[in-house]
Simulated scan of single mutants.
Amino acid sequence: MRYFLYLLLLLTQCIFAQQESEGKCFVDANYFYGNVVQHRKSIQHLITGHPEGVIISFNRKTFGEKQWESAYNYPDYGVSFHYEDMKSKALGEMYGLYGHYNFYFLKRNLVFRIGQGVAYNTNPYDKETNFRNYAYGSSIMPTTYFMLNYNKLDLWQGFGIQAGVSFIHHSNGSMKSPNTSTNTLAINAGLNYTFSRAKNHMYIPRHQDSIAYKEPVRYNIAFRGGVNENDVIGGEKYPYYALSFYADKRWSRKSAFQLGVDFFWPKYLEEYIKFKSVAFPEENVDPNTDYRKVGVFVGHELFINKLSLETQAGIYVYEPFKSTGSLYQRVGMKYYFSKKIFGGFGLKTHMAKAEVLEFTMGVRL
């Protein structure tokens, strides 16, 4: 519902903006056609055709009214609707709603888009009616897409064209098993239309800082939580907790380097250890094995206004029960409610296998 309200607000702004300035909003539509990437052998039977669909987006331009806008070469922000026919009876169809940013390069002819949202699948796993779908254990799931386009706006009467490549990821973050996920790599092409062309709207030039931007080392405490299942289909949901302590050094307005430690309490793993000890006695699993983990990580934070994009890579230094491999990754978004308080969400993975969708609250001191 929040995304629909945001879409309505954005459309209203676009309509009224037609009387204020040129090109303040534009809409684009892309048709795409591609392949499901076989990142695991277990999904090979699900790849029976070439997925195709459409991505329709509403975009609002920025002109440098805020400092971060010019620092990022005047990006756009907006909302996207996505429809995808997976061309597989078992996988069904996908419908998604996203918030996105567009970033421009090469004299604003090359645009990179990143979108994050929620998707609905029409045919998730069911042990009786759809036991072949090991990719989606639930109908509702987080989704991310990336798009790289060469585009031309307002070539004729407000209409323009674009073409490029897209990457679309669907995964429920192991909130419900099975969850092998899918990744679609596709080519796309489409049209765009720019509103309010009557008046000229100028970009405000960027002024370089006279003094290099610096911040002292900051110390962060973040509590993360989520819900997930183990790999046993039909099992219960268990709470997931993590506590992170890390330092960051911001060396520019855009970027900060991170170094820290994670403490994990994956309760699903505690039950999975007990299951393994009974179901597979030949593996000699001790049911009292500690399920907790400790990891150290390095990371990067990209600041965009009050939002930031966080990427981290870590290694477990304490892992009595080895179930996922020693390396882990985290990709997420943060929102700063104030200079010290932030919240966010992110996906913790082990390469192509998602472990949990984490929700975060933290402080930056």
Score class of each variant (00 low, 15 high):
1 M>N: 01
2 R>D: 05
3 Y>M: 10
6 Y>P: 00
9 L>W: 02
11 L>H: 05
18 Q>I: 06
21 S>G: 14
24 K>T: 04
27 V>F: 11
30 N>R: 05
32 F>A: 04
34 G>K: 02
35 N>A: 09
42 S>I: 15
42 S>N: 13
47 I>C: 08
48 T>Y: 11
49 G>R: 02
49 G>A: 08
59 N>D: 14
61 K>E: 10
64 G>C: 06
72 Y>V: 01
75 P>N: 06
85 D>H: 11
87 K>C: 05
95 Y>G: 09
98 Y>C: 03
98 Y>I: 04
99 G>W: 04
106 L>W: 14
114 I>R: 07
116 Q>T: 13
119 A>L: 00
123 N>W: 01
137 G>L: 07
142 P>K: 02
146 F>T: 15
160 G>N: 10
166 S>A: 06
168 I>F: 06
169 H>A: 11
180 T>I: 11
182 T>S: 12
188 N>W: 01
188 N>A: 01
201 H>W: 01
207 H>Y: 02
219 Y>K: 12
229 E>R: 07
235 G>P: 02
243 L>M: 09
249 K>L: 09
249 K>T: 13
251 W>C: 12
251 W>P: 03
254 K>P: 04
264 F>V: 00
265 W>P: 01
270 E>C: 04
282 E>K: 00
302 L>N: 10
303 F>Y: 15
306 K>S: 14
326 S>T: 05
336 Y>K: 15
336 Y>S: 13
338 S>E: 08
340 K>D: 11
341 I>F: 12
344 G>D: 14
356 V>H: 00
356 V>A: 09
358 E>V: 03
361 M>C: 15
362 G>I: 05
